[in-house]
Design a protein around this nucleic acid. Structure first.
Lengths: 142, 142
DNA sequence: TATTGTTATACTCTATAACTATA
DNA sequence: TATAGTTATAGAGTATAACAATA
């Protein structure tokens, strides 16, 4: 596929870069409100859905498994997460949120409302159009 | 403004999160191809436009000025950047790309073509629509 | 043998606070 | 006194390599 380099395309790329930058700033800020780093917030949100083996967390975060040890250590020392043995495979440790961790994850999700707010200025039809365009954009490379 | 929570809005938010994740992965990968970290690549791209005082770089990266010292140190030790005194204010040091740094910055920009490629599947009219929607989205909060 | 999680190590980025040299 | 850049320090994330327990 030919890569386009016209003014319109570059403008859209710049807008996407702005979206990315703003999303990150606000994500870090929301995490910080709960004294979490970005990585810790990601892991906590992940585990709030379902307990996961350490290895799987690393795959989701696209980092080395050795890094997960420290992140879970820090979440565990704050009582937000626990390690449980996997009855089916004694090599595996399942990380799971505690009740307190679940509450924190829910609050974090609330703080992330910022992500929905900018969309409030678009009509339902426009949001549908945006969804379709983003889907096609992402579908091409993924 | 009321924050929307319907299925369509959540879907768009998820798509944006996917865009953000993919953008970051590919940015880091492109930087890595040139043995640069993400932060180093950002600074190099910034300085390729114009020389900047250390303080200004920190403002652009939204981090503390003390961090810039190390980042510029590492770029300078690789011959990609140089520090020049500001003739107007002897407290200020201007960081500027070397000729080699300019070449690396240009190659980096080429590697970032990935960002344009997904847009190739959209027509000019669709890219225009996407631009307008993103503009309005960003305009609301910024 | 292969896999899971951990440890040890080194590097980078980050914030904070104290320092220096200029202004 | 205020500002620009640096240094020192500490914490967190990252990759790599080596290790113990288990499969």
């Amino acid at each position: 596929m030919a890569t386009r380099n016209d003014a319109l395309t570059c403008e859209v790329v710049d807008l996407i870069a702005t979206v990315v930058a703003r999303y990150h700033e606000e994500y870090e800020e929301a995490a910080g409100k709960h004294s979490l780093t970005g990585a810790q917030a990601k892991v906590l949100a992940l585990l709030a859905r379902e307990p996961l083996p350490m290895r799987r967390i690393a795959q989701q975060l696209k980092c080395e498994p050795s890094n997960i040890t420290g992140i879970i250590d820090r979440l565990e020392s704050r009582g937000l997460v626990e390690r449980h043995p996997d009855p089916d495979d004694r090599r595996v440790k399942l990380a799971a949120v505690t009740p307190e961790g679940r509450v924190t994850a829910a609050r974090l999700r609330q703080s992330l409302d910022f992500a929905r707010e900018p969309l409030g200025s678009l009509s339902a039809e426009e949001r549908g159009t945006l969804r379709d365009l983003l889907r096609r954009m992402l579908g091409e490379t993924g």
